[in-house]
Design a binder for these strands. Structure first.
Lengths: 339, 339
DNA sequence: CTGAAAGCGCTTACAG
DNA sequence: CTGAAAGCGCTTACAG
């Protein structure tokens, strides 16, 4: 495989001149540049990435560090990985996928061995131990998720609180006075998943504010037990005329549960949901809903990370950036107007 | 950040001796080794990965190169990525996730810039252009998928043909004489996805062999149109007493479609399916089925790739390894015994 | 505008 | 068993 010395010899110039055309940081006389470019093409030369990384102290790689808690809905993950990869590539970066169970150890490894220029942390929980691990280093990082305390780190996420309020108001404005609130399993609350807590708190708060009765239904973590839990909740809905769902597994299983209970939407019961866009698409869910926006979130995450890398440092700053992406609600007519 | 020279100085030895303890390839006197290890701990030293990669010509990174055709079922992807990452880590490798649309360009880039020591190709189709791209280089590669012609490359996959035969026989042995075969969309066949073709061909062949009438139902690629297609097929099932499903989206939507059609399983109709394990778990699918085994497949893929990397070459070999993982059928009682 | 030299942080024969 | 030296393939001041 050709190296820069081969190219220099072939073009009759020095290695530094070749390097100048490779980096594009220095002006090179057109004739010379052309000779060099021909030599590069002839020899099928490409820059050795590792050597460049060593010389520049830039790996051009970002780590995507994914904590798998087990409680969350697996199918929702891939779209974010793909979107992050796409966003990173558009900035010239590759993505290192880091899913090992020992996330704290992984962060130390990435930082100490200088494997990446920055990291994205996925599946953020409140009191996430990964944030403390980061504070030992000077590694640029962005949280994909919004914990109560970001510990001075940049963070980006869909605005789950605003989404919750919008969905609650959507029901309220159509005359609904009582609704079931199908939530994630208690295990998810115990883990303090940031998006779970933020949606939950805002939904309850907004419901109180507008005077909607919200009856929380905690789902079992075990998918096997979910169908019965859903049909049970529907059967005992009492005065509730609507259901608001924040639990992807429940959103996926709700159509069957509604069938099972013999309920038509929106004639017998109204439904609003927030769920993975991919899930909604694959299962053709027809609920009025807020869907995740992996592309938008990933773009914002990578943009923020690029800025942090360019600034030449990670860690706690005064100029922390928190970005909450406004939710969009898609009206699919699954809410009956009772007014 | 400390480097190897700092450690050498701190321990009062030469850099090469430090390197010897780092690589573990040379014997170092216990006292010396201990002094060095103390120095390493004191200085919080870790090997700079890029420098080691340059010196050894080993990146300790494998590329996972994922073609997203769009037709396949998205939620099935993540478990494979995670499993590949886990398998690779257990061999000391990290995973670079490569999802860009221009997969051929990506392969050239990875090879020429020496970014990875090897690649795993995911979502293999017959006549996959990525295989030709690989032949331009000397990059170790393993296909996760089994095309009709692997062009001399190692390949690993679940044995979809055997799975098809097992499911067909499962119906036949229980006295079913006619079944609907809910298949992937024609678009998937046109793309020639390797697992789609292999399951399909084997299912039809085995059905012919045992004398089971199999009526292919082509699903629409658009999930929106899938529910109606399924209920329609069920309504017009005629003499068919069973359904065999190879289409994850259809497996996911079938429970609702069965409800819609007022059919009980297995009383009114029997069902067997092959689908993503993750999907089956998340949706608590209760069909007798073969499920994907991302962990097993990934282990085999990485093991094969490691052997290929150790051999010091990629490309076409005489010693090609093809590994088909035996399917396991889980009997969930969704097939009625008609004998 | 171009080149010679030093340096990035390691590993690895090769002497001793 | 340990060390001095060369080398991996780049980039980047610094001269000219």
């Amino acid at each position: 495989m050709a190296n820069i010395a081969d190219v220099a010899r072939e073009a009759g110039v020095s290695r530094s001149t070749v390097s100048s055309v490779l980096t594009g940081k220095k002006f090179v006389r057109p004739e010379t540049r052309e000779r060099i470019e021909e030599a590069i093409a002839r020899l099928q030369f490409s820059v050795n990435h590792g050597a460049r990384a060593l010389a520049t102290s830039r790996t051009m790689i970002v780590g995507v560090v994914v904590q798998l808690h087990g409680g969350e809905f697996g199918p929702a993950l891939a779209p974010f990985l793909v979107a992050l990869s796409d966003s990173a590539r558009s900035e010239g970066y590759d993505v290192l996928l880091v899913t090992e169970a020992d996330q704290v150890g992984a962060i130390h490894r990435l930082a100490l061995e200088r494997r990446v220029d920055g990291v994205v942390l996925f599946n953020i929980v409140d009191e996430d131990p990964r944030l403390a691990a980061l504070s030992d280093h000077d590694l640029p990082a962005v949280l994909l998720g919004m914990p109560a305390d970001s510990q001075g780190l940049d963070a980006v996420d869909l605005d789950f609180a605003k989404a919750a309020r919008a969905l609650v108001r959507h029901l309220d404005e159509r005359g609904h006075a009582e609704a079931l609130f199908v939530r994630w399993a208690p295990e998810m609350f115990a883990q303090r998943n940031s998006f779970v807590l933020r949606f939950n708190d805002a939904a309850l708060d907004e419901a109180r504010r507008v005077g909607l009765r919200l009856r929380p239904i905690d789902c079992p973590a075990d998918p096997e037990r979910l169908p019965d839990a859903l049909t049970g909740a529907l059967a005992e809905r009492g005065a509730a005329t609507a259901v608001i769902v924040h639990n992807d597994a429940a959103s996926a299983l709700l159509p069957a549960a509604l069938h099972e209970a013999g309920l038509q939407v929106p004639e017998d019961v109204s439904v609003v949901s927030i769920h993975s866009a991919e899930l909604g698409r694959a299962l053709a869910l027809r609920f009025t809903s807020v869907e995740t926006v992996p592309g938008e979130v990933s773009n914002a995450v990578i943009r923020t990370l690029m800025a942090r890398i360019a600034a030449g440092h990670g860690g706690t700053q005064e100029d922390v950036r928190h970005e909450l992406i406004a939710p969009r609600i898609t009206d699919r007519g699954s809410v009956r107007d009772l007014t």
